[in-house]
């Protein structure tokens, strides 16, 4: 009884004191982030409500309300880009997550020569995206691509295949190329997450007679949730902003079948110099990412879950 009253009484004061500590601990991060992106962010938001057709400061920038947003919503290219981006994000993140968890668990096994596996897994990740995309664009070439040579010489295919020739195939190829590189990221985070799972849990589960699969479902996966939330949100954001790999591999072709939202924003803002509309597209990307992230966080918990108290 008395203990409970004391706790209730001290709670707000403690929260206030912790609030002040938190403030001081967070100020440096706020400076580093907002000091750089603060003003550009404000400009982007403002420009999304203006007609801006030149980068020059003296160019007129009339306020147009929601016109830029109305424009993109009525543009078939925008919806095409939305479809492509959602497709890319869904399959890219899904594959990376499934393969990444498997790979993380694999790397966790006390195998002999484990370092070789870890080096092999890290190498694709270490290759800069620009190089990775250029490499696969070359490997997948329909006329002289080494991947085609490999498939034909090992008898897996009769003939050279045009990976980037048709819409679906090009999109899937781009997804696979990105998965090949970025699954490592998921795997290493999973590996780090596995370190904090107490071994005792497995031991007692084993005594209870739980099989390996059962242990994975009921111990590993639930305890990996915070880590999975991080990588899922991270990869979703990155996938939703996908630009470099598509720019280098297909330029959004053939027939715009791989044009992502970020590529569409880039073409609008840079090639066409329609900065107002480009800003609006960028903010739409943020909105999409934000809602997807919130959804995952709700589902998976972690720091962003319900307030701990």
């Amino acid at each position: 009884m008395t203990e409970a009253t004391v706790e209730v009484a001290t709670k707000p004061r403690r929260a206030r004191r912790e609030g002040r500590t938190a403030f001081f601990l967070l100020v440096p991060a706020v400076v580093v982030v907002l000091g750089v992106v603060g003003w550009p962010l404000v400009t982007t938001v403002l420009n999304s409500f203006r007609r801006v057709e030149s980068a020059l400061p003296k160019a007129p920038k009339p306020f147009v309300g929601l016109h830029n947003y109305a424009y993109i919503l009525s543009d078939s290219d925008f919806w095409n880009a939305v479809r492509n981006t959602l497709y890319f994000t869904f399959f890219n993140t899904g594959l990376e997550l499934i393969l990444g968890v498997g790979l993380g668990v694999l790397m966790f096994q006390p195998m002999r020569g484990r370092w070789l596996l870890r080096v092999a897994v890290i190498l694709p990740w270490a290759l800069p995206t620009v190089v990775n995309a250029a490499m696969w664009r070359y490997y997948m070439n329909a006329d002289y691509g080494p991947l085609n040579a490999f498939l034909v010489q090992t008898g897996l295919r009769q003939d050279y295949y045009s990976f980037l020739g048709s819409g679906t195939s090009a999109m899937n190829s781009v997804i696979l190329v990105d998965v090949w590189k970025n699954t490592s990221l998921v795997a290493f985070f999973v590996l780090a997450g596995l370190q904090v799972i107490p071994k005792e849990l497995y031991e007692s589960a084993e005594i209870d007679g739980a099989g390996a699969l059962r242990r994975f479902w009921s111990i590993t996966l639930p305890l990996l949730r915070p880590v999975l939330a991080v990588v899922l949100v991270l990869r979703t954001i990155e996938a939703f902003k996908v630009f470099d790999v598509i720019y280098v591999m297909t330029r959004g072709g053939p027939a715009s079948s791989t044009t992502s939202l970020a590529l569409y924003a880039y073409k609008t803002a840079f090639s066409d110099q329609l900065f107002g509309i480009g800003s609006a597209i960028s903010l739409v990307i943020v909105l999409f990412c934000l809602s997807l992230s919130l959804f995952y966080i709700r589902a998976l918990g972690g720091s962003m879950g319900p307030e701990q108290s």
């Binding site: 070439n141 329909a142 006329d143 045009s162 980037l164 020739g165 090009a170 297909t250 072709g253 053939p254």
Partner: peptide, 10 residues
């Protein structure tokens, strides 16, 4: 047909 994905260098 791969012309539709070939750049000048291809």
């Amino acid at each position: 047909p791969s012309s539709t994905q070939s750049a000048e260098d291809d």
